[in-house]
């Protein structure tokens, strides 16, 4: 035992969170992040003049937006707003129907066939990797402008979302219950209906409501590419520089989104 040193200290073990290699790689990650920020800010070339007069521009815009032309609501907004809600709802229902088989195929505890599994994953990923505006552009090209293109765009974008989350919910069910039903000699479909379905039902409603909430917001902009809804009204007002009408449209969208949010929160509270 060394003199002068606390004898208790000698026996202490060191608490080590990371090994030296881990510590080195953490520093490396930090370095890469900083480098990425530096490189990208240099690359985008922000024009300083545009940045300096931004406050003036904002004030100018607000002046033109205010006061909103509320009379425009009855003329051009109301119809389009209702249409937007219909696009969101129909799109969500269609997405749910499409997502059910895909989710079943993507859940590893239900589908063991690797081919089906890979196919389901492909569907889910491709649905999510394309923005709903891009889907809308595609469907406008196929079906022409209008609500049908909007509904399909919303549905195709939502399949990936609903399918992925439902698939994950299916994978998280208590497998003991499923095993017990299998042990009674129940056919696979009955096991799905009585073993899996009661367990994922709350999650499913929650997912679908959440997606509907998102879709109300997404369908509001679909009109910008001609896929129906309030976005058309917004686009028209923007193109004709009627900023007071733009303000009315924006306010209506804002109100609807808030109401949708409140409704969804209430319903979710009730079912779960």
């Amino acid at each position: 035992m060394m003199t002068g040193n606390d004898p208790v200290q000698m026996t202490h073990r060191r608490l080590q969170r990371f090994s030296p290699l881990e510590r080195f790689s953490r520093w490396l990650v930090l370095l890469v992040v900083v480098a990425a920020i530096v490189v990208s800010t240099r690359h985008v070339e922000i024009i300083p003049e545009f940045l300096y007069d931004a406050p003036t521009q904002i004030l100018d815009l607000l002046n033109r937006l205010w006061p909103p032309d509320l009379s425009y609501y009855q003329q051009g907004v109301h119809e389009a707003l209702v249409e937007t809600l219909h696009i969101a709802s129909l799109g969500t229902i269609l997405a749910l129907i499409l997502a059910l088989p895909v989710a079943l195929c993507s859940a590893t505890n239900i589908t063991t066939n690797p081919l089906l599994h890979a196919f389901a994953k492909l569907v889910l990923v491709s649905s999510r990797s394309v923005n709903s505006l891009v889907w809308a552009l595609l469907f406008v090209a196929i079906f022409g402008p209008g609500t049908l293109a909007g509904v399909l765009a919303i549905a195709f974008r939502s399949v990936g979302f609903v399918g992925k989350l439902l698939g994950e919910a299916l994978e998280e069910v208590h497998m003991g219950s499923v095993e017990a039903l299998k042990a009674t000699g129940a056919p696979a479909t009955s096991v799905l209906l009585k073993g899996y379905w009661p367990q994922v039902m709350p999650a499913l409603w929650s997912i679908v409501l959440f997606r509907w909430d998102i879709n109300v917001r997404e369908s509001a902009v679909l009109g910008l590419v001609g896929a129906g809804g309030i976005g058309v009204a917004l686009n028209n007002a923007l193109n004709t520089f009627y900023w007071d009408k733009v303000a009315t449209v924006l306010l209506s969208i804002f109100a609807v989104v808030i109401v949708a949010e409140l409704v969804v929160t209430q319903i979710r509270k009730r079912i779960i």
Partner: peptide, 16 residues
């Protein structure tokens, strides 16, 4: 399997 009843440690009921 219909003729073989099984009872489990964790009961394995369908909880909901």
């Amino acid at each position: 399997r219909r003729k073989i009843g099984m009872v489990f440690q964790e009961y394995n009921l369908v909880e909901r």
